[in-house]
Design a protein around this nucleic acid. Sequence first.
DNA 1: TTGTATGCGTTATCAC
DNA 2: GTGATAACGCATACAA
Lengths: 340, 340
Amino acid sequence: MKPVILKDIADQLGLSITTVSKALKDYPDVSKKTKALVKKLAYELNYVPNSFAVGLRSQTSKTIGVIIPTMVHYFFSTVIDAVLKEAENRDYMVIIMQSNENYELEKKQVDLLLNKGVDGILISLSNRTRDFKHLQKILDYKVPLVLFDKIAKTINCSKVIIDDRKAAYDAVTYLIKKGYKRISHFRGDLNPQNSIDRFLGYKKALIDNDIPYDPSLVYICNTNLDFEDGYNSAKKLIEDHGDHVDAIFAVNDLIAIGAINYFNQKKIAIPEKIALCGFSNWFMSSVISPSLSTIEQNAYKMGEKSTEILFQEIEYKHKNINVEYQKVVIDTALVIRKST
Amino acid sequence: MKPVILKDIADQLGLSITTVSKALKDYPDVSKKTKALVKKLAYELNYVPNSFAVGLRSQTSKTIGVIIPTMVHYFFSTVIDAVLKEAENRDYMVIIMQSNENYELEKKQVDLLLNKGVDGILISLSNRTRDFKHLQKILDYKVPLVLFDKIAKTINCSKVIIDDRKAAYDAVTYLIKKGYKRISHFRGDLNPQNSIDRFLGYKKALIDNDIPYDPSLVYICNTNLDFEDGYNSAKKLIEDHGDHVDAIFAVNDLIAIGAINYFNQKKIAIPEKIALCGFSNWFMSSVISPSLSTIEQNAYKMGEKSTEILFQEIEYKHKNINVEYQKVVIDTALVIRKST
DNA sequence: TTGTATGCGTTATCAC
DNA sequence: GTGATAACGCATACAA
């Protein structure tokens, strides 16, 4: 079976391709009668314009591209959920690529997307991305770009983030007010801005509350192996500090849950002996025992907002309206449960 | 900045577009010198063929489409992970769509993908899909199609599944051998084949082991609300049967974990008072306390195999080789942990 | 009101 | 060895 093309309709009605094309697009210079005939037949034959041809002429594809570090992750799959729904509402398609925290791959994927003629691009950067020429290239090609969560401060485009530093600051301040004094931080990799900001928030909360910052209480976790690293860091923490620590602020929920698992195994009471606070409000954090205090990060809203902005920029570009780049900060909230 | 096109290269070298095109494609009738010149400049200018033009001519897009019921799900995000990696290896792009268990949407998405000219389609059907005309349409258009996990038996195409009935049978047989006698089943929705097969495996295991099948021990869970429904069904189970039940075989891990949560809250000892077995080996099942016995479903392998077959069919179609549709059954395995 | 001609960028056929 | 031309399907400026 072959797809129906304009010519099929034109032939069957004894019209020219042009007239059929115009009729379908409601051009004012086609008679009502003809329009009705054409539309009826087009509907019956299930006509859909060939997207390559449309793309070739219009240089638009009704498709957006998304690059994320990894799919198998509550945060990102939720973001993608939102992106897909927003795109669906606008009859857009979504090409998704995983950089696997690999800069070279990310760069190549940007090229593929540009080449594919996507109408806009959403990216959450790989942890290893330190050079942003590929992002600049997107802008040079005048393709709308929105960065979310893992962003590049120096690139001039719209961004959707959370205030990691403030969220961490609030969480640690809460721990301090609760009476915890020796608060450890299980931080993420050294490079990504999120880890840095959460760490800085942690540090500032200590200092603002006259608790000396003790670097020996900070453990670096590999955020690819979150759970395992949470477990191992908890073990190390106890080996290094024994009773001399009463709370942990973890850079994400999985790491916190790994730590909870260790403490449960060793029968170290949570929160009596040691309290834990995570980050993200992953579904499991309400289910684990004890349930985990954490920070609601609102991945869905982040995906939704990013996509909204992207589509607005696509529309503006189309209408030749000047776009003002936006920087949106998605609200976070402390979720208090049994682990603190 | 404008993308570089063949004409740019041709103009700069004083050649015709034709020659440039041929040189880049290593046609034998272009001189070595010209080829070298063209390739060098093309590389320097970062030339990439316009994908709309290529698509328009070749009717291929180097893109495949995937439709799944939902993204935010360990099983599906893992499948997608595999699909993306396999596609990446072949320099293919992937368009992903969520049907949200909505048949109408699934149908529309198939149309969009066909219209988009994807080279192949992977689908895991929505639970509400009972009519398969949209799948037949894909085949009518001669677009390679592979169904995975949630399949339609009557559609003549390649399929990748697990043997749900056998896996369930093995799990329940194991429970029986362990000495459990009053085994409840928390099943999924009535329609999807997976739920049906797992239920049938459960039933057959009972009968083969001379344990009477008791319908009052079967609870239907809504697999959109898995966790909550697991919790609620556990509650109902105890209300209905009290001590008169000693094990549960749940249709998926989330439902089992919901039930574990209820039992933990009510201090009903697992597995002493009641044992639990899940299905899928979701990451959390090894982390929850007590850790959950379950069935390893190997989502990654399923995604990998499905994509492999799809690409093989795409290749065969391209080479005009006849394809034999495959039906691949991915191995499952019982994973025994502390909950049984 | 309808139709002709042209171009989007690439590639295959055929002529030189 | 090279290049002119047509075709993929659609949309528009322009002619009739």
